[in-house]
Design a binder for these strands. Sequence first.
DNA 1: GCTGCATCTGCACAATTGTGCAGGCGACAA
DNA 2: TTGTCGCCTGCACAATTGTGCAGATGCAGC
Lengths: 312, 312
Amino acid sequence: MTDDTRIRAAWLYHVGGFSQDEVGQRLGLSRFKVLRLLSDARAAGEVVISLDHRSSGTLALAEALRRKLAIRDVLVAPDPGSADASAARRAVGMVAANWLRVVAASGPITVGVGWGRTLSAMADALTGVQNPQLRVVSLMGAMVRTGPEGPIDVCARIAQVAGGQALFLPAPFLADSPEDAALFMRQRLVREALDAARSASHMIVSVGEGGREALLTSSGVVGKADLAAMAAAGVVADTTGKFLRADGTLAPVDLNERTPAIGLADMARSEVTLLAAGAAKARAARAVLRAGFVDRIVTDEVTARVLLRGEA
Amino acid sequence: MTDDTRIRAAWLYHVGGFSQDEVGQRLGLSRFKVLRLLSDARAAGEVVISLDHRSSGTLALAEALRRKLAIRDVLVAPDPGSADASAARRAVGMVAANWLRVVAASGPITVGVGWGRTLSAMADALTGVQNPQLRVVSLMGAMVRTGPEGPIDVCARIAQVAGGQALFLPAPFLADSPEDAALFMRQRLVREALDAARSASHMIVSVGEGGREALLTSSGVVGKADLAAMAAAGVVADTTGKFLRADGTLAPVDLNERTPAIGLADMARSEVTLLAAGAAKARAARAVLRAGFVDRIVTDEVTARVLLRGEA
DNA sequence: GCTGCATCTGCACAATTGTGCAGGCGACAA
DNA sequence: TTGTCGCCTGCACAATTGTGCAGATGCAGC
């Protein structure tokens, strides 16, 4: 009913080339109704605009960065202009989605995914994949107060657009003690999920800054005491529930023993794509890159420049 | 230079969410310049909007038609509204492109393609495929005065977006006599192309109405005498250089011996997708369907209804 | 039935986008 | 040097699209 007219309106407008007024006449709706229908359709992902990122400028930048980092592949989204980090996330998300569209297009394939706003943006931009043999596995435990960027949501949304299967890690993102985390990881169902994650040919993760304004902090997952421990241990980045120092090594904090998730060694065995959107992530991204398990980075132009400039 | 600013402007506008005015300020261009840049980018296929066609209405229609025709698959594009046939072609082209995007996504695959305005629309709408192992083969000979809808153009454009390989049939679409056509088909290079075409796992063809206003006539390929012979023999459709009667059998005209192309038997062995855009094509499409080699039809809502209503 | 709450609708107005056209500018030939 | 031809640029104006808001409508709970 509404579903139908929405799609019909979108076709009349985008393919038929009618004005919103004309669409309204044909469908017996007011122009305003059509206006809202169209924006709904865009929000629902029924209408997707996707664009090329291969300008000569970004290509050169990507190649330079690829050489410097000595990794397999670098994709750079053009600078979307605003300092607003959400624009950078959308840009990186779109480029990552276009890449994933090709990778996950067909055949039996397992993809491990992290969480966060950039991965959420990627899920938003992802369309046109139809692969029932796609398995999407969450690489870490779940949050409690979970928005669209939580581990479960991101994983489920990606699986859903492709018509594939989603697998979650049935454990909390952060356990109260290392012993509890170990207990969780011994559970049969958790082990099954972890095994699936370890078999993933591709992993897509993002990076947190480990700071005060980071999503991990603001979402209330890590508390005050943990924050202090992180600062003391020199944590500058976190991915997949692992907290790293600037040199890419695991920081000596018990947090690293308290997150049920796959380990860094598992990631080294898979083809890992790192999403880093926004220059504020540059330092953290550098730390993750130093850890040595990243095969491809997708980032925006500004951040790419910062990474290229940075020492060593 | 221009290439670069065009893409940059597109990102600022579509991803960054700036108005054309603001984009102009950032890039040091006038609003009008930006306006033109954006429409260029759309024309160049750097910006693509694609939309879902799965409304409940068209799904029901598709399923009904699938049962009636007893073929594997039916895709119905929502009615784009105008009686204008080019809108129908765009709609069908977009749906077909979305289907092909999935099919041709990866792995070594050979796809045979026909020609015409609908296939050209499909090529326009096709993006996001990146498969160097894709081989696109033209199923018939070439036209002389060839626009973007000629066999060579369609084939090359599809191959180009995917970064794959295009193979042409190095022969004219129509030879002067059956003997000449046979001579062409004995050429080694022609035989190679035909062999490649026969090995295609998928073929995508459209249908001509065989009438006066058909592209085949207006493009000057068939002359007056041939037209009369076609009328006398009851030709109502042509695909891939074969001219069919309403019952789906080859019409007794020497045209059928004069077109260097793969044969109907070859098509029966492959998975054939028929594109039929616009109700004017309904009769012709019916004839092709009766020939029995079609596995999937992509059509628009209006035409689908006509086909569904039609006798037998 | 009534009340309060939330959602939906369409309007006036604001902003953005698109178009036709006149002038400008460089290329090229005479 | 000059004419002229084609293309590009930006302007005035036209059309389309987007927004805030007031009233309408529906609906659950009393």
